[in-house]
Design a binder for these strands. Structure first.
Lengths: 331, 331
DNA sequence: CTGTTAGCGCTTTCAC
DNA sequence: GTGAAAGCGCTAACAG
């Protein structure tokens, strides 16, 4: 059933029905009500493609995630997609997901069927790439990236800052009375977090000791070994902050293996809030970013550009501390 | 630039260009080549919505995942989506992702803009629900579900069978010479796997001993405790199969804490192949399903129905054993 | 093999 | 406030 047939059933014209369905002002309340009710009753639904053709709008937002994404791990993508979908759905938009590397190869055959783009950047995303993805600036875009925006001012940005959460974690430990705090890194000594840590310690009123920092690696076992080494220090830490939750799980095991307890004897704080964080014993206090918030921010940024022609914006979102049970007052 | 303008540039008619772009037979090779080249050169792209309107096709497959999905965990959704996208992309289709519970509420305003649906079912998905989602059978659908198809014969099914992989795991252990094999479950004594285990043991030539089966729970710590209990049995197992990788990680810790080694003294096999499976020490031998294969199977099933009007099909996909380092010959 | 023509189903002026 | 008519950009049927 098309809109004309439907209109005839109500003794109205297609134009009037269209206006009613689009919530236009010029239609009488009585008519609008009738149309809405009957549409529901008779199960009438507009042909989306005709509507898109004539309006030039697609009611579609594309979420693009290169598979080399390190900004947000796979695990978070679903959460992100859910949030974006919710946010854009509230405005009548659908979500199209593009994951592969299969970038521009669909070249011919289809023009851009999306009104806006949300791009999860990877460390090697370039401005040129973003421009290509947006059909040379024709499509509004928001890029989700680490600290610094790309050199592509036409885009909006949602920047993820890992430092504040780490700051909260260290501050929390300081507040709990810990004086000696160890660090177990994931094996990348040049990382942003690692480089900033001494300053963070200072700000929390703590003394940074290089001997209490180990770049361990990525496995749980490596976390255990690093923690063991830390705890065998002549002046051992009473708290350990690890770069990942997996390392934290390892550190907890190390504490137990020494006949000590978490958090009674040693506090442990992790990073990432992965699934097992809440499953280990004790449940892990950890640093994480609010993914739904990231999704909502990105969605609202594209929508603002699409619907209100808003100027490109830059938002900064920070990690924060999720307090569970693995950190307590120093003995 | 629309197709008529573009055609004029080449001194052709819109019809001819359309035929060339659609790879129709009636167009001369010479013309086709010209059109394709010039389209590339001038950056001409057809208006997707006009095409959709006139053909009645949407070139869109929808992947729908209720957030109550337990059939496939969140972690796998991205992998699944990637596989589906690749498979449908090869046929010129795009992927629309629908995650929320927000089911049919978009009722008015948009008709179904998808040619087919892939539905990841949850334990409580009903036939009526599937019917509603397909616009009363108007849209081809394939349901990804556990062992048994729903009572909705119009759909195709990709059924996931966990048993074969568990069978492989136990058989492997038997082949390695293990006689006593322990089981650590996730606390659901009525589960399909648990119920089938005695038969699987029998088939592998192993004796099932109820005293060697513990329904532990979900945390790593619970895995450790269960394994400890198992290993303190008067006639302890030389291998342990756990229902999840997290439990397996716990079991490995238990073995170490006893001054023993994995796999030299005790073999451990997990289930799920979660991220940490390859990160623990030793890398975990585990049971898993090939998600990309699931995605490809589902995608091909919808596409077959859409493009060749193929009859609904039922495919069974099984878990299998991923051999890493945590299982070895019995001492 | 190619040009011409008639819609696909909707929204949007323009009359009334 | 509503109806009539034009047209969005494309494909497909029909001529030639």
């Amino acid at each position: 059933m098309n809109i004309t047939e439907f209109a005839n059933l109500l003794n109205l014209s297609a134009g009037t029905v269209s206006r009613a369905l689009n919530d236009r002002a010029e239609v009488s309340p009585r008519t609008r009500k009738l149309v809405l009710e009957k549409a529901e009753e008779l199960g009438f639904r507009r042909n989306a493609n005709a509507r898109r053709l004539v309006t030039g709008k697609n009611f579609l937002i594309r979420l693009e995630c290169p598979d080399t994404t390190h900004v947000l791990s796979d695990r978070y993508l679903v959460e992100l997609a859910r949030a974006v979908e919710d946010a854009v759905g509230a405005h009548g938009y659908d979500l199209q997901l593009r994951l592969g590397t299969r970038r521009r190869e669909v070249a011919i055959g289809d023009s851009m069927p999306a009104d806006g783009l949300i791009l999860v950047s990877s460390p090697d995303t370039t401005a040129a790439e973003v421009e290509a993805l947006t059909d040379h600036g024709a499509m509004p875009v928001v890029v989700i990236c680490e600290v610094r925006p790309l050199d592509f001012p036409a885009a909006s940005y949602v920047c993820l800052d890992t430092i504040p959460g780490v700051g909260e974690a260290i501050k929390k430990l300081a507040e709990l009375g810990h004086k000696r705090v160890g660090y177990v890194g994931s094996g990348r000594p040049g990382s942003h977090v690692r480089a900033t840590l001494p300053a963070i310690f200072a700000e929390a009123g703590l003394v940074w000791d290089d001997e209490l920092a180990i770049e361990a690696g990525v496995t749980q076992e490596q976390g255990t070994q690093a923690a063991l080494q830390l705890l065998s220090h002549p002046s051992p830490p009473t708290a350990i902050f690890t770069r990942t939750d997996i390392l934290a799980a390892g550190a907890i095991q190390a504490v137990y293996s020494l006949g000590l307890n978490v958090p009674a004897d040693v506090s442990v704080i992790g990073h990432d809030n992965i699934e097992i964080a809440s499953l280990v014993n004790p449940p892990l206090t950890t640093v994480a970013i609010d993914i739904p918030q990231v999704g909502a921010a990105a969605a609202n940024a594209v929508l603002a550009t699409i619907e209100h022609k808003a100027a490109p914006s830059v938002q900064n979102l920070s990690t924060h501390l999720i307090v569970r049970k693995s950190a307590a007052a120093a003995r």
